[in-house]
């Protein structure tokens, strides 16, 4: 791995910066990273520019205009309340990406902290890992549904409910890296030389987790977007006052036969977004760490 070598060399000045730039250039040569990343950037742009892109307010009702097919007035048709599906789908990209990115970052952050603690503090390891085993034993969707039932429906609670089941996976990953890195001669040497624990962690252990975390994080992001849509679809997610792709589909599902656009357009956006994140993840994995190929 390029990154830990450079850190091991202790180069934390402009050389480190150029290493990052080189890594990025290296990454961008990968076809999957190009396609997935490009698509994702497009989605993010749509989400950011959403208020400029939508034609009417995504929550504006017009009951006399319900279930219209796509046309010049409503590019993707209207839903059972006469709301504009195009504007809603555009708005929905904000929620999906917000949930996906927040979950990935929170899970990675919390998981890294807990993973390092578990890998470093022996007495904590046992307890923490038993709790993580317990959490992992509960199917993610069930856990999320139950948590939302308790926390109440809302974007915040959906994010928490999707994050919690993901944390144990990150903890396990980070902990295993910590355990293996700790045995490396250069780390043992640093410890023997009296380097304080937190410095060892920052200098030697954290850098080793970045690549696998990045890869794992993209997969968590894709998974979170998918779960969010499933939760909304089942009526157990973000409240339907907020247009998310899952909610648009949930409200349109019974009219599938007469107005398939209520399902078709959000589904396409959803699939494309998940696809782009997955492809990006594959690309990152292939370039950053070929060894990771075996672990899903």
């Amino acid at each position: 791995m390029t990154t830990d070598v450079s850190f091991e060399a202790g180069a934390r000045d402009e050389r480190a910066l150029s290493v990052w730039a080189a890594t990025l250039r290296f990454l961008l040569r990968n076809r999957s990273v190009q396609i997935g990343g490009g698509l994702l950037v497009l989605m993010i742009a749509i989400a950011l520019l959403a208020p400029l892109l939508w034609t009417v307010s995504p929550t504006r009702l017009d009951t006399a205009m319900r279930l219209r097919p796509p046309g010049p007035d409503a590019w993707m048709g209207t839903d059972p309340f006469g709301r504009d599906v195009y504007s809603r789908v555009i708005y929905g990209s904000r929620i999906s990406l917000l949930v996906g990115l927040t979950v990935a970052m929170t899970a990675a952050l919390v998981g890294t902290v807990l993973g390092i603690l578990a890998g470093y503090i022996r007495w904590l390891d046992g307890i923490l890992m038993r709790v993580m085993d317990g959490l992992m034993a509960i199917p993610a969707i069930l856990l999320a549904i139950a948590m939302i039932a308790v926390l109440g429906a809302g974007i915040g609670s959906v994010i928490i409910a999707i994050t919690v089941p993901e944390v144990p996976r990150v903890v396990r990953l980070v902990r295993s890296i910590v355990l293996s890195v700790r045995e490396e001669p250069y780390v043992e040497a640093a410890v023997a030389l009296g380097t304080p624990g937190h410095l060892v962690m920052v200098r030697h252990i954290l850098p080793n987790t970045i690549a696998p975390l990045l890869v794992q994080g993209t997969y968590i992001c894709a998974f979170a977007i998918l779960i969010e849509s499933i939760l909304s679809f089942l009526g157990a997610g973000v409240p339907p006052t907020i247009p998310t792709w899952g909610n648009i589909m949930a409200e349109g599902r019974i009219y599938f036969q007469i107005s398939p656009w209520n399902i078709f357009f959000p589904a396409t956006f959803l699939a494309l977004t998940i696809l782009s994140v997955n492809v990006l993840g594959d690309g990152l994995r292939d370039t950053l760490d070929p060894r990771l190929q075996r672990s899903v």
């Binding site: 504006r60 009702l61 059972p80 309340f81 009526g235 409240p239 339907p240 006052t241 019974i254």
Partner: peptide, 18 residues
Amino acid sequence: MYPTDVITLSGYPPVTAQ
């Protein structure tokens, strides 16, 4: 209160709200 799971009721609250 906006019950979203019953199709014969979920039509009303958004209309009132608007």
